[in-house]
Design a protein around this nucleic acid. Sequence first.
DNA 1: TTGAGGCTTTCAACA
DNA 2: AAAGCCTCAA
Length: 756
Amino acid sequence: MRLLENLNDNQREAVLHTEGPLLILAGAGSGKTRVITHRIAYLIKEKQVPPYGIFAVTFTNKAAGEMRKRIVDLIGPTGEGVFIKTFHSAAVYMLRRYGDRIGVQKSYSIYDQKDQESVIKEILLEMRLDPKHVRPSSLSSKISEIKNRQEMLDGADITALMPRGHAYNFQEIYEQYHSRLEKNNALDFDDLLIKTVELLRHHNDVLETLQGRWHYFMIDEYQDTNYAQYLIGSLLASKSKNLCVVGDDDQSIYSWRGADIRNILNFEKDYSDTRVIVLEENYRSAAPILEAASSVISNNSCRKEKNLKACRGEGERVVWCRASNEYGEAEFVVNSLIRLRRQEGFSSRDFAIFYRTNAQSRVFEDVLRRENVGYRVVGGLRFYDRKEVKDTVAFLKFLANPVDSVALERVINTPPRGIGKATVDKIFDAAYEADISPWEVIEGEIALKGKMPKGLLEFKKIILTLREGLALVPHKKKLSDITGDVLELTGYIRSLEEENSLESRSRLENIDEFINSVYEYEERNPDVGLDQFLQDISLLTSEEDPEARMSEGNNLVTLMTVHNAKGLEFPVVFLTGMEEDIFPHFNSSDTEEGVEEERRLCYVGMTRAMERLFITSAEVRRRYNESVFREPSRFVFEISGAVLDSLEYTSNGYGYSGGPSERRYSSRGASSALNQGDRGTENLVSTLTADEQEERASAEADRKFRLKESVLHPKYGRGIVTRIEGKGDNTKLTICFEMWGNKTFLEKYTPLEKAP
DNA sequence: TTGAGGCTTTCAACA
DNA sequence: AAAGCCTCAA
């Protein structure tokens, strides 16, 4: 049976144990994803379980997509039908079908952290509190903390949980917040899960319907589930009891989001007949790396003892380098990377640079760019969080959900049409007085006693026209058409075109990219309406956004936070900024639990490395533009000396104090510099098709750029035009950059220039 | 009402 | 250093 080949005994047992509760404690690099995908494939192929009868959740939509792909690789297109999602998108799925039972309308908006904060800020102003003293961000995290409490979900009295002794009344803010969200027909991320629990708990017919559909459940990264997720899993699986959870208590890193490690620790107590399988063979990391990581994590007191075995065998020792400042640190990283690429046959995509906080990426970006090394930053600002994209989405949100006042506030004066703060205040006050939505105030023109400002009338007309368009052909109107209408009618594109600055052109470029992503979405989901589209993109992470997908094929170094690194692996890892107050982070350092979670995070970072692991710190770092001396992280000193080499770095070169090994990788040498990823520009140009040659001849005269021409981009540097498609305003240029590979731009908006 | 220019604050992680 | 907030002239 092919499905059971290439599995070790424990993995095979996990695949074969299909009935009843199963707990898989999967150490780092122990082939967890392999087990999950094989298990699902086995259920379908050998146990004749229909694909739609399997419910699986993972951590990101991307991981879900990859898992589905691997299942399809194993058993063919049948595997497409498996329900694999994140908890949040599974919640959206259930709420879409049955939300009306608990008063959740189809058109609700999903509020992210920024939206939450702007709601809270409004409340504070209304309560005459200063948002500078009482920070909306800390209130929103406090609210979230309460909503993740067991008491809250079990319907107990939560007034005792409300913080007291502040100058403000927390409970009042808490209640106001929820009444506003309700008025706006909006749910935050926590609500998605909470409402789903409510649905499953109080509507037995719904629960039974779903239990009739799903008979087998798999939950990945179980150590990072919160109480609501725990309940959703338990409720759905309560009938069949075929619940398989996979996780590693040492990799629990989301307690700040409400994740409760007890979910995995108590699983055996919840289900008395649980079968427990421990996967301890690590197939990922060279022995010294695994030993280094194990020596760090062993300092945690609250954990299940385990004994990971390095199956990969010996390899290079871990290197710790303390540079004089953060630039020295980045130079060390980039120089090492270039050296490894040249001497040991690694390719750019083999490298990852990890850091604790997003802000640390900048210095690495500076140095990488200076040294002409292409990179991609994962996380940080999402594509959908860019101002221009958010504005466009806010228009769509407002069309779908007219009572969404957060979206309204965002777009009412976008682009500027003469509606200032005073007018907006009047509208919102009038809405509050009459207990109606701000839009109803505008529509009924009851804000200013007949004297509507010109811009407001204009706004009203735009929205009415757009809505008319929606209503006329409700079933045929395509998402891309709606988006096009919005950008057209609101004058958003026009105003950016008129601005015609470097910045506005880059914004137009992003809007164009957004339109492209709408087209793509529409092709993949032909029958999906505006509501669902908006809810879907609200749940996307940066790894899944269009920009990330664009750079996917290219051979680039990866930069990301350690949190984002969860579940991934790289041949060479640089774990940077290993200093007290950064890692462990200042805000976690004062409690033992806080430090232990940071230590687990460090463990996650270290165990991503397959062949080489570098750990770096700086002696001095600039913060708020002030130089501060830094202590090396305590975690560095916890690494077993037997596998660690210490290194000092000065700009002149390396000064070894620990005598690193001279061994080289003989196995990889051949694939080095001419690796397919290190594409030369010459090659690409010579592969032009006849069509393209012809295209070139016919349209060359009136074009700004020509094929093979050398161009300069403010971000990507020098490149060469390898493809020209489309005509007029739709002309698209594909440029092959020396360090970044191929990227496509709309000629009309791109900040490209002819190279001198 | 707008937008430029000055002043203040910010750097924790994410669906 | 850079983003965000506020003020004030037009």
